[in-house]
Nucleic acid binder design. Sequence first.
DNA 1: TTGCTGATTGTTTTG
DNA 2: CAAAACAATCAGCAA
Length: 184
Amino acid sequence: MKWLLTTFCCFTSGISLLKMKVTRGKGAVKKDKNEVVKPVEDRAAGKRKAVLKASRSSNKRTKNVKSAKKDPNKPKRPPSAFFVFLEEFRKVYKQEHPNVKAVSAVGKAGGEKWKSLTDAEKAPFEAKAAKRKLDYEKLMTAYNKKQESTEDEDEEESEKSKSEVHDDDDDEELEEEDEEEDDD
DNA sequence: TTGCTGATTGTTTTG
DNA sequence: CAAAACAATCAGCAA
């Protein structure tokens, strides 16, 4: 009954809900319970859970960020082919399993399915992921520039940029994936 | 109320 | 080179 919760939130304050959506749930992962430095067990074993735990637990974005400081403008890493595939897979999975609400379920199913896919099948996903990566690099460049700008100054991207940069939100033209090669 | 957690693999990043 | 971390999702639970 998530509706209850949702309704509850809405009832109390819809603003909160908005925030939740924005955060999406990626904000975090904090908490350090065990820092196990285990070697690459190997995905085949299928027990990378420990590693995962460590990863989540470590979590550097929320607190304790010595090397990388929290950058609100820092672009997020591009989704891997697997993630791209997952995005679509999730939809299908939900359709076939509307009762399943656990994210882990989709993850497992997606993982197995992914393995089942062949290079040819993964090709389109990889292509998309590759494109995503290109954009990521571009964003990174812009981000780097910002870094230089905000190197010491407290300039938070605002003034000068406005004049030159025009609003940008819909400037996304990346719908050109015509690279379909069926060489078979 | 609000954020974390779980589970998947791949890519990115840093040491 | 290698290991670690982080990318999305969604509902449920805990502080």
